[in-house]
Simulated assay, not measured.
Amino acid sequence: MTLPISVISVSGTPAECGAAYGAAAAPLIAANVRLYLQRFRDQAGLDAAAVRAAGAAFRRASAEVHPRVAAMLDAVAEGAGANAEELYALNGRTELIYGTRHDGDGGCTSIGVLDTHTTTGGTLLGQNWDWHPAQREAMVVLQTRDEHGFEVVTLAEAGMLAKAGLNSAGLGVCLNMLGSDRDGPRAGVVPYHVLLRAVLESDHLGGALRVAARTPRGASLNLLLGQAGKAGEYGGEVIDVEVVPGDLGWLHPVDGFVTHANHIETAVAVHDRQRDFGGASLFRGARARRLLAAIMDDRPDRKVNEEDLKVVFRDHGGYPMAICRHVDERDEPLERAETVFSVLLDLDERRFGLAEGPPCGHKYGFIRLGLS
């Protein structure tokens, strides 16, 4: 089965990749910029001038810290005929909308399973990405091969460079939005989604963790990272990292797997804003752990597969604010959310899987890394 949205495949230097992506996705990028300019006004009180000023600051910081990623994003703007500062603001939408407040129940439930606990012997990552339903119409899968042959495939909001994805080194990432009392505007921070792209440009897990730790940031996020092993030599690895401004905490798999939702589970010394308003995050990660553990308990080898992860991602416990999230019409329109897409990553096979959400009503399609 093919993927449910367009795959944009580009190759070359970062600038060449960005320009080709921008040109191919120009109408979607324009629509997404309009969508977020409206959200910045309605949710953060930012007019176009304020958005561009914030984007200019993000652009300067990105060019200093991650110049190859910045070169790609600059070229996306040129290729799409878009304003570069607005595109940087787009990639920093989490900082701009939620930087000083976090009064929604932004979703996402992530799972990582070590290769020792999968039936195929491959390391698996996956997540449900919960966001505003209208966002589904402005999404792409971006597949790039740089001038050195290094490949990345990732889900992306049009005009952004990354979200959940994997690369040709067998490194993958899933993500969850967090909120802490350290979030907020400050000089020199790199946007959330630029950081994600820099993580996916890493060719080993230690390098990805360096990027996560060393990138100046103004928003809290959770990164579920994994890397495939090498057959006959060593196994894969999975680690979950809660990255807040100025600090980070980490979780390792227990009984072969780790799960995460949208609240802080490590001992980082911040106030978790999820505590201020509650919501489904407080049970979704734990429920995913219980569901996966129950599947393992029913099997002598205690191993799971992609089909088992699909079962978890389609779970309706706590409906409508479940792991498989559905819109609650009682929410304010700007705060309505559902599972927009569900992602499955087989790091050893370099397979990227995607289902339109909520996944209870849709099948997963898969592609493998390898540009034609």
Rank of each mutant, 00 (worst) to 15 (best):
F40R: 09
R136T: 03
V76L: 12
G236M: 08
M160P: 00
V238M: 04
A84D: 12
G246A: 04
C174L: 13
C174A: 11
A219I: 14
I29Q: 00
E86K: 00
V153P: 06
A261Y: 02
H271M: 10
E64H: 09
F283T: 02
L87I: 07
D105L: 05
G81K: 01
T123F: 10
V258P: 08
V258C: 08
T266E: 10
Y319C: 06
Y234V: 06
K230F: 14
H193L: 15
R41Q: 15
R330V: 02
D315P: 05
A294H: 09
T259E: 11
R275S: 12
E78M: 09
P185G: 04
Q274V: 03
G122N: 15
G45C: 07
D298L: 13
M160L: 10
E338W: 06
R275N: 12
A322V: 05
S11K: 11
A89P: 02
T215A: 15
L248A: 08
A23Q: 14
V244I: 14
V211L: 10
V10A: 10
H316T: 07
G104Y: 09
T94F: 15
I295W: 05
A24G: 06
D276S: 11
D247I: 02
D348G: 15
R210N: 15
A164C: 12
D183W: 06
L354M: 13
T154Y: 06
A212K: 00
D115I: 04
L46A: 04
L248R: 09
L155A: 13
P4T: 01
G126K: 01
K310M: 15
A20F: 05
L96S: 09
A19Y: 09
A48V: 14
V7E: 11
A267T: 10
D105H: 14
E64R: 12
A288E: 10
G317L: 11
G361K: 02
G226M: 09
R289T: 14
C108V: 00
D181I: 01
V10D: 03
G172H: 03
